[in-house]
């Protein structure tokens, strides 16, 4: 059992979730409410990481963040370190990779908030920001919680992007799924079993807890 890798994965998942909880709500709100003519293009862009092979995404990120790209060079100058094969590099990759998992549940629940409530808040003098914080967000709790859990669990199990972008440096970029891959490669099936089992149990527990917490808000066939 590679506890260092598990700790690193948990840390990566936590940081990614925190960043997306700040980044995704405005983006999801914009997508849910915009009448922009090209909104479907924005929709498709946000959803891309969901269907793109993770290795492809990881490959492009590696190029984009590497020292030979202008953006990568700029980032390296700012942080004093080249992003690929570092933990911050993993965070950037994970944020992009999990973006649709954070945006789409939020977007769906924002869109379900009754427009009349938003208008009522406006007419009561609430700015757009205050309306969002005091009316839209509280009424979309289920979607926000779902987004957070999905992001967390999705990041926890991420493999392709991490491998392409982070490589396999113990304690720095070796995540739990990379560790499992390593264990299988070295034919240590017992260790792979234990690590995989822990990951399954953790993911299941998180999802079960979430559904339990949201049992009121889950649509269900009515019982009379």
């Amino acid at each position: 059992m590679d506890w260092t890798a598990l700790a690193l994965s948990l840390r990566l998942a936590a940081v990614t979730t925190a960043i997306l909880l700040a980044l995704a709500p405005p983006l999801a709100w914009w997508l849910a409410t915009t009448r922009w003519r090209w909104r479907h293009v924005a929709d498709a862009l946000v959803a891309m990481p969901m269907i793109l092979p993770p290795t492809v995404l990881g490959y492009y990120l590696l190029l984009a963040l590497g020292p030979r790209s202008p953006a990568g060079a700029l980032l390296a100058r700012l942080t004093g370190e080249s992003l690929p094969f570092t933990f911050p590099g993993l965070v950037v990759g994970s944020v992009i990779y999990s973006l649709p998992f954070a945006v789409q549940p939020m977007r769906a629940s924002f869109a379900r908030v009754d427009r009349e409530l938003v208008e009522a808040a406006w007419c009561l003098g609430a700015s757009r920001l205050r309306t969002f914080a005091r009316v839209v967000l509280p009424l979309s709790r289920a979607g926000v919680v779902a987004a957070a859990v999905l992001t967390f669990v999705h990041t926890l199990g991420e493999f392709g992007v991490v491998l392409m972008l982070g490589g396999n440096l113990p304690g720095r970029t070796r995540t739990v799924s990379v560790a499992i891959y390593d264990q299988v490669q070295s034919l240590d099936y017992a260790a792979a079993n234990r690590t995989a089992g822990v990951l399954v149990a953790l993911s299941f527990a998180l999802l079960a807890l979430t559904y339990h917490a949201q049992r009121e808000g889950t649509p269900r066939w009515p019982t009379t």
């Binding site: 009754d114 409530l117 208008e119 007419c123 609430a126 509280p138």
Partner: peptide, 19 residues
């Protein structure tokens, strides 16, 4: 914008904040 018009608006169903 409606925020600055200093009007009270009541919709058909009231639009009370359910939370």
């Amino acid at each position: 914008p409606p925020q600055d018009r200093d009007v009270g608006f009541v919709a058909q169903q009231g639009a009370l904040f359910p939370h």
